[in-house]
Design a protein around this nucleic acid. Sequence first.
DNA 1: GCGGATCGTCAGGTCGTCGTCAGGTGGCGC
DNA 2: GCGCCACCTGACGACGACCTGACGATCCGC
Lengths: 228, 228
Amino acid sequence: MQARLLLVEDDERIRQALGLALADEGCDVVEAASGEEALGRLGTTPVDVVLLDLMLPGMDGLDVCRTLRDRGDLPIIIVSARTDTADVIEGLEAGADDYVTKPLVASELAARIRALLRRRHGTGEPRRSLRVGDVEIIPDEDVVRRAGREVHLTRTEFRLLVELAAAEGRVVTREELLKRVWGYDYFGDTRLLDVHIRRLRRKVERDPDEPECVVTVRGRGYKAGTPG
Amino acid sequence: MQARLLLVEDDERIRQALGLALADEGCDVVEAASGEEALGRLGTTPVDVVLLDLMLPGMDGLDVCRTLRDRGDLPIIIVSARTDTADVIEGLEAGADDYVTKPLVASELAARIRALLRRRHGTGEPRRSLRVGDVEIIPDEDVVRRAGREVHLTRTEFRLLVELAAAEGRVVTREELLKRVWGYDYFGDTRLLDVHIRRLRRKVERDPDEPECVVTVRGRGYKAGTPG
DNA sequence: GCGGATCGTCAGGTCGTCGTCAGGTGGCGC
DNA sequence: GCGCCACCTGACGACGACCTGACGATCCGC
C-alpha cells in the first residue's frame, strides 16, 4: 500500500509501538508528539492520512482536527480513549472521517486506513503524481502536464515516461525499458525504443534538441532528468 | 441533511426501530429485508448510503457488499453484531467504508453517515447534482441541464454520464463502464458502448465533433472532461 | 394495433498509433 | 583526423480502436 501517514500522539511509548505496528502493515509512518508539531510537519511533508490522538499537550486535539479540515480535505482518523457516543459525534463533527477507540488493533486500523484511501481515490491507492522537472504525471487520469498545460501522450509514450520517472533519476537500461514496456526479451539492437523516445521528447521537452527530462546515457540507456 | 439511505436488515423489529430513529435524525430511509431485495431496490431508487447488516437470509451480507462495490462506489456502512477484529477487517476489505457494531446508537450512526457523505461530496450534504463542465446532472430525474437548458437523456445515457461524472476526471475503462451500466462481465470487444457514447455526446456536447465533456482515452476508456 | 422511444447489432469509414526502415549525426577510441 | 557504432530523425504502411449512420427488435402508452 505504502500510504504515508502522520501519527500524532504524545505518549512516546504508545507512539513508537503503534508506529512500528503500522510500519509492519506496510505504512510509511511519520510521527509528531503534539498538535503544533503535526501542523508544522504537514507544511513540509506530503501525507496521505492523519492519525490523531485527542489527548494532547498544548493545542486541543479537536482544534487540530478542525484546523486540518479547514485547510484541506486530508483524511483524518481520530484515535481516542474516550468511548462515549457524545465524544465520537463531536470528533466526527469536527471533521474526522473515522473515530476508533483504544485499545487499538493495528491490523484493523490499517484496514480502516485502506478503506478511507479507497474512498478517496477510488482504488485504495493514494493518487500520487510523479514529476520530472516541470512535467507532472497523473496516472489515474492518463494525463501529463508540462508547466500546467495538458500534453497528450500515447499509451506507449506514457508507460515509457512512467518507467523513467519511477526510477527517480537512476539510469534505466534499454533492455529494462524494452522488457517493462513491451515485454520483449530482446537481445541485440532495435530502433523501436529510440523512435518512441524521440516521440516522447517532442511532446514533453521544452526544446526537443536539448533534452532535459529524458536524458540519453550513451551505451547504457536513459534516465529522467534531475530537476535540481 | 436529508440523506437517502437504504437500510438492509432482516429482523423486522430492529429494522423499524432503527429506521424510525434515523428518520428522526433527518434521514430519508428506504428499507430492505434481504440482499436480493436491496440490490433490486438500488436498480430503481437513487440512494446516498447503504446500511448493511451482515446476518441476512439468502445471499451473504459480505457478498452483497462486494457486489455493490463492484457496481459502483456507493458508500456502505456495515452494521453487525460480530465484533472480532477479523470480522471488521473482512468487512472493510469487502468494500465497506465503515463497520459499526451492535448495539447501535442512532445519533452516532447519523454522525458517521454525515462524515462519509462529507468525505464523498466535500460538504456533508448528500449529492443531489453533479457537474461536468457546463453540464449539470440531477440524479433524481433522468434530466440534465446544459447551460440552463434542459436536456433529456435516456436511462442508459444517463447512467453512463453519471459513472463518468462520479469518477471526477479519472479514466473509466470500457470494461468498468460495461460492467457498471450493463452488468456485463467483459464481453470481448463490443461497439455497444461506442454507440451510446455517441448518442450521449450528441445531446450534451456543445459540438459533438469536438467532445469536451466525454473524452475518449484511446486504448483505455473514457473520462469526464476537466473544465479549467 | 399503431406509433414513438429506446436499445442492441452491424458494416463501413476514419484516424491515431505503432513498428520498421534508411539515412544522418555525433561521440569516442584509435 | 578517421572510422565505427550508438543514437537520432523523418517518413511510411499496416493495423486496429474508435466513430458513424442505418436498421430491426422490443417495450410501452394511447
